[in-house]
Design a protein around this nucleic acid. Structure first.
Length: 422
RNA sequence: GUGGCUGUAGCUCAGUCGGUAGAGCACAGGAUUGUGAUUCCUGAGGUCGCGGGUUCAAUCCCCGUCAGCCACCCCA
């Protein structure tokens, strides 16, 4: 009988890795909240149509990467491949978006049926934030400045670069798309295979093809910026001006297009070269048409997603997580001899009076030596020792495991005092 | 979906030109009775990913399959 193992691309997050995740999550949450974002939670499962209508029918995500199946009632349902669609649906359905400004954030698992790779899993995790009801460039800039602050808080700002671009209005993009297709169609034979395929599926994606031959072909191609409408142009200039004054360094990349259909105007991508091929660590943009497209009133919106796995990978690669985050215990309680019940009493007294204390009671017996060994391996700062002598006199021996300090024999009440000063 | 590399102890890996396997770390016990990290001794732990084929004999060769890693595609 073979053992059951996890599904492909579904990984377990083990205790040794959780400090990095906790560090990341704590920083992100407190930063978002400090900018006035409020948490929203919505289901992992949604109607398949939600994603088809928002992400775009002909995108790779919808065509081949969604976990989709028929529910028992015959309805087609899908595990969310990204967060924006569900967030918009939840906001709209609950009346959050009616003529109001909303700053929302969320985090959680997303699912895409892809071949696993470094920084890419089938079940992966994202933080996302979406702002509704603001159409000006100020919020676009605020988001970018906020994210830049996050990188500083996390200690990874030296390893991430910002790329920005504007896609203009849907009309401008359609016009450009046609011009690009016309240009490339005439040179189809010189395009790489993938780009030839994209000519009719998603021509804009050809712009960030990795083929050098295709790239050199694009040098002479019509440029998106020449097609951008003046309003989008001004909007983008204003965003850039704010970034300049905030001291946020960025690169304007006219070939940056996002894969999801709903983006327009400002788009951006934060990229690192420390993670191999999956270097995009955070990406997003403006999607003023989506709420209406999903049945709501016209509502301007901007948002972004951040890949948690990728950020953790980067944090670890750079050594940005402080050691203190990993420490799980302050004290380890050793009980030697026939004193189990007394040690247990002591420990409960201590816990009641030291609510912050992280203490592990030794269970399972064993020699003094082996218990001390476990105390050491536990990474605790100190060992609290209860033996026959201590139990008989109401004392506890306090031994420092990480620093050179004399062992102390103290009454339980004094131990409480000492622990509260840690 | 495509390609390359890999799958042996809890972890990292070695190995057998085909005769059912070892190291380091980790774990458990001990080096005279209540003191951890160093050192020394001892021990436990593996149907060598799974299925099939060739063979007297396969963990090693062949085929298939599953999984992992990396890259393409795509994306966070």
């Amino acid at each position: 009988m073979s053992k059951i193992q996890s599904l492909r691309g579904m990984s377990d997050l083990l205790p040794d890795q959780s400090p990095s995740w906790q560090f990341l999550e704590a920083k992100v949450q407190s930063l978002l909240q400090s900018y006035g974002y409020r948490e929203i939670r919505f289901p992992l499962l949604e109607s398949t149509d939600l994603f088809k209508r928002s992400i775009g029918e002909v995108t790779d995500i919808v065509e081949k990467e969604m976990y989709t199946w028929l529910d028992r009632n015959g309805e087609s349902i899908t595990l969310r491949p990204e967060g924006t669609a569900g967030c918009v649906r939840a906001g709209e359905q609950n009346g959050l978006l009616r003529n109001q400004v909303r700053r929302l954030w969320y985090s959680g698992a997303m699912f895409r049926y892809e071949r696993p790779q470094k920084g890419r899993l089938r079940q992966f995790h994202q933080f996302g934030a979406e702002v509704f009801g603001l159409e000006g460039p100020d919020i676009d800039a605020e988001i970018l400045v906020m994210i830049a602050r996050l990188w500083r808080d996390l200690g990874i700002h030296d390893h991430i670069n910002l790329q920005v671009n504007t896609l203009g209005t849907a009309a401008a993009r359609a016009e450009y798309r046609q011009a690009l297709v016309d240009y490339l169609l005439a040179r189809k034979a010189d395009l790489d295979e993938d780009s030839q395929r994209r000519l009719d599926s998603n021509p804009l994606r050809i712009l960030d093809s990795k083929s050098s031959q295709t790239q050199s072909l694009l040098d002479q191609a019509p440029c998106l910026h020449d097609f951008i409408d003046s309003e989008s142009r001004q909007h983008f200039d204003a965003v850039c001006a704010r970034l300049d004054s905030a001291g946020v360094v960025y690169e304007i990349n006219p070939r940056l297009v996002r894969g999801l259909d709903y983006y327009g105007k400002t788009v951006f991508e934060w990229v690192t070269d420390s993670l191999g091929a999956q270097g995009t660590v955070c990406a997003g943009g403006r999607y003023d048409g989506l709420v209406e497209q999903l049945g709501g009133k016209p509502t301007p919106a901007v948002g972004f997603g951040m890949g948690e796995e990728r950020l953790v990978l980067l944090l670890d690669a750079v050594g940005a997580v402080p050691d203190s985050v990993g420490r799980q215990l302050d004290a380890y309680l050793v009980a030697v001899g026939d004193v189990g019940h007394i040690a247990f009493e002591y420990s409960e007294t201590i816990r009641s009076q030291c609510p912050q204390l992280r203490m592990q009671n030794h269970c399972g017996g064993g020699s003094f030596k082996s218990q001390m060994k476990k105390a050491d391996r536990s990474n605790a700062e100190i060992a609290l020792i209860v033996g026959e002598d201590e139990a008989a006199t109401g004392n506890i021996s306090v031994k420092y495991l990480r620093e050179k300090k004399e062992q102390q024999l103290l009454p339980v009440a004094d131990v409480v005092k000492l622990l509260n000063q840690l």
